[in-house]
């Protein structure tokens, strides 16, 4: 028997009616998440580095950005960028781009604090050893501080990426056809909220698990780079994502 594509509509009942729409929405959700993440990571790196600058003006600009985008509701920011910006600039953004922009700016603001904290957590003697070896300020940051700080950025960065994934559901409010939007549309035509939102919830959850797994690989690589053992602690996992004890999936040396 051939395997059934769950997105094809061949499944029985509500599943068959809803899944094609939900799958279309899931693709959009993934796109907005990836776009938002790319923007957020760049902004977090730039603003995070800027907030450790010696120049007060650079620090101030980074701080204003961080406080502004961290301090206001994402949904309001989204409406503002989508509806108010065209009135000011005369240029209308596509809904999906407005969504990516808002989420990137917002999560980038949170991320800049992660970057700043991780840089400042690198022990001062590392910086001093860099001075004693006559590295330039840039070389110290690039070759000594950042590689060590990066390890500390990964776990809180993972949480922020999951926050970002969940926040993408807000773009349905400016009629981006993401998974939440599609679920709403389907519910309004065939009802059965219980099943449909249940399915969507599980898919969000699985997407978050993918982020977690990818980031765990990143964390392990980063930890090895600074000569640290792979973290022994394993975050709680659901039974079906837990690799069998004999498989190479864990990979952690203990």
């Amino acid at each position: 028997m051939a395997t059934i594509n769950p997105c094809s509509g061949d499944l029985p009942g509500t599943f068959g009616d809803a899944m094609p729409f939900i799958c279309d929405g899931a693709v959009v959700t993934a796109q907005v998440t990836l776009g938002g993440a790319a923007l957020a990571i760049v902004l977090a790196a730039v603003a995070g580095l800027a907030s450790t600058s010696h120049a007060w003006l650079v620090r101030a600009v980074a701080r204003v950005y961080m406080e502004f985008f961290r301090g206001a509701s994402v949904l309001v920011q989204l409406f503002w960028i989508f509806y108010a910006m065209p009135a000011i600039t005369g240029y209308r953004l596509s809904p999906i781009f407005a969504g990516v922009l808002t989420l990137g700016l917002n999560l980038g603001a949170y991320g800049s604090e992660v970057v700043r904290g991780a840089i400042q957590a690198v022990p001062v003697p590392q910086r001093e050893a860099g001075i004693a070896l006559n590295f330039s300020t840039y070389q110290r940051m690039r070759r000594i501080i950042l590689p060590q700080a990066f390890v500390a950025m990964v776990p809180p960065g993972t949480s922020l990426l999951i926050e970002l994934l969940k926040a993408t559901s807000l773009v349905s409010a400016i009629s981006v056809a993401d998974m939440t939007y599609q679920a709403n549309v389907t519910v309004s035509s065939i009802g059965n909220q219980f099943t449909i939102f249940g399915i969507v919830m599980v898919i969000y959850f699985l997407m978050a698990q993918v982020i977690t797994m990818v980031m765990r690989v990143v964390e392990r690589r980063a930890a090895t780079m600074v000569g640290r053992e792979t973290p022994k602690r394993r975050p709680p996992q659901m039974a079906w994502t837990d690799p069998a004890p004999t498989s190479a999936g864990g990979g952690g040396k203990s």
Partner: peptide
């Protein structure tokens, strides 16, 4: 230094060569 302050993100050889290569 008292606490050595080797760079943990580099192996031993790299610890020694990085400054001559980058700074000199």
């Amino acid at each position: 230094f008292q606490q050595f302050n080797l760079f943990p993100n580099m192996n031993v050889l790299r610890n020694i060569t990085e400054a001559p290569v980058r700074a000199l």
